[in-house]
Computed example of a mutant assay.
Amino acid sequence: MKNMGNSKTISLNVTSKRARARGEMVVAAPAAALPPAVERAAFQLPRMTVTGIWADRAEMSAATNWKSFGANIVLTFEPLDAGNTRVLATSTPQVPTTLLDYGQGKSDVTDVLQAVAAQL
């Protein structure tokens, strides 16, 4: 695992099943710092387009490639205490009947979490 900036290295805990992926990390930053970090991180992720950013979550869409018809990624920010926040990321395919994405969803979730952590 790469150095992820200010995040605590608990683990990314990224899992994938049937083209759906889920990952989480804990960062040493208040929840209010996450929305701007997601916005900055999006510039490092050429396949991703930010579709919305709110105080408690952010949504992105991943473009189509040979592994996937695209995906919707939702980041949820859960404050643990004044200085720590859990970031939960989920990826679901844009085509609901997709059963196989050759690991693209898991890769997308890992890339998004690492990019956000690097911005904190």
Rank of each mutant, 00 (worst) to 15 (best):
M1H: 02
K2Q: 12
K2W: 12
N6Y: 02
S7Q: 09
S7I: 04
K8H: 05
T9I: 09
T9K: 14
T9Y: 06
S11I: 02
L12P: 00
L12M: 13
T15Y: 04
S16C: 10
K17I: 14
R18G: 13
A19E: 06
R22S: 12
G23D: 04
G23E: 04
E24S: 12
E24N: 13
E24H: 12
V26Q: 03
V26M: 03
V27E: 02
V27L: 14
V27S: 11
A28E: 12
A29H: 05
P30E: 04
P30K: 05
P30S: 10
P30Y: 13
A33M: 15
A33V: 07
P35L: 00
V38C: 01
E39R: 14
R40F: 03
R40S: 06
A41K: 08
F43P: 15
Q44F: 09
Q44S: 14
P46A: 01
M48E: 09
T49E: 15
T49S: 13
T49G: 15
V50T: 01
V50S: 13
T51N: 04
R57D: 07
A58D: 06
A58Y: 01
E59M: 08
E59R: 06
M60K: 07
S61E: 05
A62H: 00
A62D: 11
A63K: 11
N65H: 15
N65Y: 11
W66D: 14
K67A: 08
K67W: 14
S68Q: 08
A71R: 02
A71P: 00
A71T: 07
N72K: 07
N72F: 08
N72I: 11
N72W: 15
I73Q: 00
T76C: 01
T76G: 02
P79D: 00
L80Q: 10
D81K: 02
D81Q: 09
G83V: 09
N84R: 11
N84W: 10
T85E: 12
R86Y: 09
R86W: 10
V87A: 01
L88M: 00
S91F: 07
S91T: 02
T92L: 13
P96G: 10
T97R: 10
L100T: 14
Y102T: 12
Y102E: 09
G103Y: 14
G103W: 05
Q104M: 08
Q104A: 15
Q104C: 06
K106Q: 05
S107G: 15
S107W: 14
D108N: 03
T110E: 05
T110I: 06
D111T: 00
D111G: 04
V112A: 05
L113A: 03
Q114N: 09
Q114D: 06
Q114G: 03
Q114S: 06
A115L: 01
Q119D: 12
L120T: 02
L120W: 12
